[in-house]
Simulated scan of single mutants.
Amino acid sequence: MSGVIVYAMGIVCCSVCAPAEMDGEAVAAEVTRAHPPGTEEGWSVSQDETFRTGQPNPCACEDDPARRHWLMEC
């Protein structure tokens, strides 16, 4: 899955860690392919500007500077 890792999955939201060079559209496409949400639109970058922790969406991965975290919604 191109190095895209879903690390938290909910019914309509998920949190994803992806290579920093990927844009939101590419990340969403990979998550939709690997984890189809059952909606016609699939996954997309959340309109929320921050995660519930207050970090921006997207934000740098705290474990790997070559990756970013994204909040997705369907």
Rank of each mutant, 00 (worst) to 15 (best):
A60P: 04
E30I: 00
P37L: 08
W70P: 02
V12P: 02
P37F: 03
A8S: 05
A28G: 04
M1K: 09
H35P: 01
A8P: 03
P65E: 09
V31W: 03
V31M: 13
T53K: 05
E21Q: 14
R33Y: 07
P37M: 06
Q47K: 09
H35A: 08
D48G: 04
T50I: 01
R68S: 06
V4Q: 10
S2Y: 00
E73N: 05
M1A: 14
E40V: 02
A28K: 01
V6W: 01
H69K: 13
Q55H: 11
Q47W: 00
S15G: 14
G24T: 06
D23M: 11
G54Q: 08
Q55P: 02
V12D: 07
M9R: 11
G38V: 07
H69N: 12
A20M: 12
Y7V: 13
C61Q: 05
A20E: 13
E73F: 03
T39R: 15
G38E: 10
L71F: 10
G42L: 05
R52V: 10
R67F: 00
V31H: 11
A26Q: 15
V4W: 03
E25M: 09
A34M: 07
P37A: 11
A28N: 13
C17Q: 02
P65K: 01
T53Y: 11
W43A: 04
Q55Y: 09
A66E: 14
C59Q: 11
E21H: 11
I5W: 05
E41F: 14
A34F: 07
G3W: 01
A18W: 00
M9S: 07
T39V: 11
V4K: 05
H35N: 13
T32E: 08
G24Q: 15
V31Q: 08
M22P: 01
A66Q: 12
G24D: 13
A28C: 09
E62H: 07
Q47Y: 02
E73D: 14
A34I: 04
C14Y: 05
A8C: 05
V16L: 06
A66V: 15
G54V: 01
A34L: 14
M22G: 03
E41H: 10
G24H: 04
L71E: 08
A66F: 12
C61V: 02
C59E: 06
A26P: 02
P56W: 03
T32Y: 04
W43P: 02
L71D: 11
H35Q: 08
W70G: 09
V16Y: 01
W70I: 02
A26S: 11
A8H: 08
V6L: 05
E30Q: 14
D63P: 00
R67G: 00
R52D: 10
A20H: 06
C59H: 09
D63M: 08
R33S: 09
A34P: 04
E73T: 13
S44C: 09
M72I: 03
E25S: 14
D64M: 00
E62C: 10
D23I: 03
E49S: 08
P58C: 05
E73V: 02
V16T: 10
L71K: 13
S46E: 09
V27E: 10
N57Q: 06
A18Y: 00
D23W: 01
G42D: 08
D64G: 15
C74I: 06
N57H: 11
S44T: 10
D63G: 07
E25L: 06
A8M: 12
T32Q: 09
S46H: 09
A34T: 15
A20V: 09
C59Y: 09
R33G: 15
P37G: 13
R68L: 15
W70E: 05
A60D: 04
